[in-house]
Design a protein around this nucleic acid. Structure first.
Lengths: 130, 130
DNA sequence: ATACATGCAAACACTTTGCAGCACA
DNA sequence: TGTGCTGCAAAGTGTTTGCATGTAT
């Protein structure tokens, strides 16, 4: 990995994700930082999120059909997205990595690197507003 | 659901997915159809793929960090994407819907509608080319 | 006849990137 | 002092959409 420097912007990006807690989108990180540091650019936010993910300090959360997110929680867990309001929540369920791996019958020569398990549904607030 | 019509284009889109078999991208469907029907537009391909998915004739496959795909296989199964060549393959493993649902401890009021399980790795061809 | 569908292009949402100047090590 | 990083804007991907026209029912 190439050498990296500690810039103010890098710190701000990491701190913003920690502050926002709930797996924010890059856009949310950008808006959060802009309050205190209005000159930061969106490109810098994206670049630093990628750097922090590569360094293993943040986890990338792939969200179908919308902006991806980053998670400050590093242990394996799963998410659900409300298809009405778009918010993303943590699932209350144990890690299934072992079970999932044990179900693989034949990798067909594939080197499996990672997997994603993602739920979609309607959150309590949105379902009662009908 | 609104009434739908049987257009030549709709048939062509469905037939293309069946012909191409391996969960093609909309772009691949478009290029395939264009050989026989050069005036079809990409918008029409996207629109019809969405209609066919809504009708339950095709399955949408959400692929992290790249174009989505459609699958003509309707029964629940999982996919893996080679991060080197980008191709998507079927996983050789049984359906885990029951196991996954049984691991959910508390839905916190969520109406869970669906889930996606997706693998990433390096395919045999790409890993031997190193 | 009517409303759904088409082709086209523009717009959209999200993300990356080229570049000139800046600042951390 | 050098190269990694920044801000900015432009470009890149993938997908949807507005509109005038066409066509299935």
């Amino acid at each position: 990995m190439a050498a990296t420097r500690n810039t103010i912007q890098r710190d701000l990006v990491l701190q913003a994700v920690l502050d926002l807690k709930n797996h924010p989108t890059p856009e949310e990180v950008y808006e959060h930082i802009r309050k205190q540091h209005p000159t930061i650019s969106k490109g810098t936010v994206y670049r630093n999120l990628n750097v922090l993910v590569d360094k293993g300090l943040l986890l990338k959360v792939d969200v179908p059909d919308s902006a991806n997110r980053v998670d400050h929680t590093l242990k394996s867990h799963y998410h659900i997205r409300c298809k009405t309001c778009g918010r993303v929540f943590d699932m209350d369920m144990p890690d299934m990595t072992k079970e999932i791996k044990s179900m693989i019958r034949d990798t067909n020569g594939f080197e499996i690197e990672k997997y994603g398990l993602f739920f979609t549904g309607v959150c309590p607030q949105c379902s009662e507003q009908k």
